[in-house]
Design a protein around this nucleic acid. Structure first.
Length: 563
RNA sequence: CGGAACGUGGCGCAGCCCGGCUAGCGCACUUGAAUGGGGUUCAAGGGGUCGCGGGUUCAAAUCCCGCCGUUCCGACCA
């Protein structure tokens, strides 16, 4: 491709609206432009990369027997009503105003619709159907460029099996295919497994990637690969031992002391000696007192799975009514509520907590002696530096982006839509489904998040818009121009994909900077200086290393580098 | 949906607080010339409903009200 004839609008300055590196670089290198919040156009080079990524996905999906479809984005609302997902999606689902259509945010319903009545026999199964299509979600807050958009490209696959055993196989096949896809794209990812046994067989795995731009927080062990969303992650904690002697309970006047920090400052104690109280309302009618050590936050997700039902924090007005005090002065003594403490506080004594009387705290609390009905549970968030429950190595807690998700659906959609098949005895059963997604643009953005420097993007052998970036420096010089044209011609014929900077009126500096910004791994530089010695230069973008090569050795050299 | 900031040629910004001639600057663009290995130089140009609507005023980019858009923090996220 000739630079002079291609739309590559590079930018010298950082666009004001972009914040994260991938977003900034995708705009600066001329890959994308925003049309509206969360809605992006892909420009020629950007779209070329999207096609390359799609092709990797396509190959690996086909390798496990996937068949590619192309389904409509415009769907009759009726189908979505049948599965109850118009309500489930709520405002996230885009509705068409002048006809009863919705814009598909995913395609379980539509795939199931086509399976219905067509996959009639056990002989028709299993099947893996997929597509790479634009999805629409009315995200309340699009962000991070292409990472969370209102319109995005997703590879979504659906498996259809006769039973759960078959589903296991389809699921395993996708798990392997996904690893190949992300490996081939050169991404450093990890897998978060969640086998929440609530619905029996349902299992899911998320393929994630560490990034400050991420929307999930995960705990990860680099040694054994343990990874879990911080909502559910556990870690080994060493609880503080009881003091030998338990003091008697005593009340302390603590005017205007509300937070744990203030309490510690006021009493000159350590926050590990404090039991922080929070009131939660269980099943909307029963208040429960939660005790956490020091400044630890309550992990509401863990609390919910401990209690079951519904859980919400108490409102400020409720607190006064229930405990007689405002937040900051609540505690476990003489309160008459169900009390659940985090495991870190197990059997502790000489603790400080609120007195259920504003501006007073209580010291000398012994949870064994003074709080008879206390229950214990893991209610905290795992933190960086704590030990992995599987291998004792140190856990790391960080933000991560979800790249892909594989999920055992079961019969939810086949039941709702009546997608059934006949077994060898003529008995009918719901088809067992799986659902498997990959965010295509996210692969692109995440690759950049993991591969860039201060000059621009760093493509590599896994992913690059072109194999070579050929730079003709002073194209007004006939010799430079002739040699560059000749190299472009010959290497193109040999099958290399080349971006040829043939611009006549750009200076060397501009071309070098654009080449570094766009970031193709190998630059071939043709300039007057080296032509005097019959040489051209090969430069590696990532390291900046340069090599002089005789013109007639270039092709062999390139062959050596790109295997 | 709560909190905050911003909106001025294609891009990045100044001007606004304290209203006043033809609304500036840098980059980009056009033309000409020089230069040609790291965003080079000189000269001459083109391009703006100052987000939209209303109000105050002799006069509004500037002050007031409403709306819209974008970004950030939070809530939400099959």
């Amino acid at each position: 491709m000739r630079f002079s004839k291609t739309f590559i609008p590079t930018l010298k300055e950082t666009p004001g609206d972009a914040v994260i590196p991938s977003h900034i670089l995708m705009i600066r290198a001329g890959l994308t432009r925003m049309l509206s919040a969360g809605i992006y156009s892909f420009l020629p080079i950007g779209y070329k990369l999207i096609r390359k990524i799609s092709e990797v996905i396509r190959e690996e999906m086909n390798a496990i027997g996937g068949q590619e479809f192309h389904l409509p984005a415009l769907n009759p609302k009726e189908i979505w009503q049948e599965t109850g997902r118009v309500e489930a999606f709520g405002d996230t689902l885009f509705h068409i105003k002048n006809r009863d259509y919705v814009l598909a945010p995913t395609h379980e319903e539509i795939m199931a619709f086509h399976a219905k009545g067509n996959l009639k026999s056990y002989k028709d199964l299993p099947q893996i159907w997929y597509q790479i299509q634009t999805k629409f979600r009315n995200e309340p807050r699009p962000r991070s460029g292409v990472i969370r958009g209102r319109q995005f490209l997703m590879k979504d696959a659906y498996s259809f099996d006769v039973d759960y055993e078959g589903l296991d196989k389809s699921y395993e096949a996708h798990d392997k295919a996904y690893r190949k896809i992300f490996d081939r794209c050169g991404l450093k990812y990890f897998v978060v497994g969640a086998s929440s046994g609530a619905m029996g067989g349902s299992k899911s795995e998320e393929f994630m990637l560490k990034s400050d731009a991420g929307e999930d927080t995960v705990a990860y062990c680099s040694k054994c690969g343990y990874a879990a969303n911080v909502e559910v992650a556990t870690s080994i904690i060493e609880p503080i031992k009881r003091d030998e002697i338990s003091k008697e309970i005593y009340e302390i006047s603590t005017p205007n002391v509300k937070s744990i920090d203030e309490l510690c400052g006021f009493l000159k104690i350590d926050d590990t000696q404090c039991a922080k109280s929070r009131i939660y309302i269980h099943n909307n009618d029963t208040p429960v007192l939660i005790l956490m050590q020091g400044n630890e936050e309550v992990n509401e997700n863990k609390l919910l799975s401990f209690l079951g039902g519904t859980v919400r924090p108490g409102h400020p007005e409720e607190l006064k009514e229930i405990t007689g005090a405002d937040a900051g002065s609540i505690g476990p003594i003489k309160i008459g509520l169900r009390i659940i403490a985090d495991l870190k506080l197990k059997d502790r004594n000489n603790l400080f907590s609120g007195a259920n009387k504003n501006d007073f705290h209580i010291g000398g609390i012994d949870l064994v002696r003074d709080v008879k009905n206390i229950e214990y549970a893991d209610l905290r968030f795992a933190k960086s530096g704590e030990k992995c429950i599987r291998c004792q190595n140190e856990l790391e807690v960080f933000k991560a982006i979800e790249l892909g998700h594989i999920f055992k659906l079961g019969t939810k959609y086949s039941d709702a839509l009546g997608v059934r098949y006949l077994d060898e005895h003529g008995k009918d059963h719901p088809i067992v489904m799986g659902s498997y997604g990959i965010g295509v643009e996210r692969i692109l953005a995440c690759f950049i998040e993991q591969n860039y420097d201060e000059k621009g993007i760093l493509w590599n052998e896994h992913l690059t818009p072109f194999d070579l970036h050929l730079v003709g420096l002073n194209m007004k010089n006939n010799e430079v121009s002739n040699i560059a044209e000749k190299i472009f011609d010959e290497l193109t014929k040999k099958g290399y994909e080349i971006l040829f900077d043939d611009r006549i009126d750009e200076t060397a500096g501009v071309k070098f900077n654009d080449a570094d910004l766009i970031g193709i791994p190998i630059q071939i530089i043709v300039g007057e200086k080296n032509l005097k010695e019959n040489s051209i230069e090969i430069k590696f973008r990532k390291t900046g290393e340069r090599y002089k090569v005789k013109i007639d050795e270039l092709e062999n050299k390139i062959k050596e580098i790109i295997k």
